[in-house]
Design a protein around this nucleic acid. Structure first.
Lengths: 117, 117
DNA sequence: TCTATATTTCGACATGTATCGAATAGTAGA
DNA sequence: TCTACTATTCGATACATGTCGAAATATAGA
């Protein structure tokens, strides 16, 4: 019951982080394997510096940094400094958890009792 | 590629609609089957009046109406007057489409590797 | 240590959002 | 038609967000 409410709060926070087109684009790039124009291979991918993430997004670097902070706050993206740069990657389990929110709804189209109190 | 950008805008709009805990709770209820205190059967459910949707959410009816309008604007929820009440239901395909956003991401192998140059 | 590069923080501003209660509007029934 | 019920719209208010450029911070290398 309280778990239900916390769930909602958590997912709402994550959806909020994804509600800005710029942030969503950054997240999707991070969540996908290969950067545009690159051939995907298993050794590559999944970590970007802040600047790289905003490569084809037309906003200032400070705004970019702000958005990354939001994604990080929501627990979707993790960050760590590596030399001059700050590496970013999608937090493990994030995508699966988000997918599960909708999968749980569509999996049981007409039978679900969890709301009852 | 242009489709890619439009995609992002569309999904961002939808995530925005789901970014408020109250709206998310309303959406989830609508996406699930039974109203509280009701026995679930196939003929019932899936449609709620505005008031029913906010039954256990502690906000004013005008705020509730506002949130429903947002969900409707984002294309997640459809509404139609039926007598004194306004019925609400989840727009067809909505859940599947939202799920597909994350499924498409998680389908890719998620191996963490080098930073892109 | 000085410099170039990468990123964050700060201050400012315009715009958007959540919320309420009151007023308004649509509908069903007495 | 009058009334009760349901929902929307309106006006107001407080707060949050996206954005920028400038200043500050962190790091690597000359």
């Amino acid at each position: 019951m309280s778990k239900y409410r916390n769930d909602i709060e958590l997912f709402a926070t994550q959806f909020k982080a994804l509600s800005n087109p710029h942030r969503l684009a950054m997240f999707r790039r991070l969540a996908s394997c290969c950067p545009p124009g690159t051939i995907c291979s298993t050794e590559e991918a999944v970590r970007y510096s802040v600047g790289q993430l905003g490569a084809d997004i037309d906003i200032s670097i400070s705004t970019l940094s702000h958005h990354l902070k939001e994604l990080n706050r929501a627990g979707l993206v993790q960050m760590a400094r590596k030399g001059k740069r700050v590496e970013c990657w999608v937090a493990p389990q994030t995508i699966v958890q988000l997918a599960s929110f909708f999968d749980a709804l569509s999996a049981q189209p007409n039978i679900q009792g969890e709301i009852h109190e």
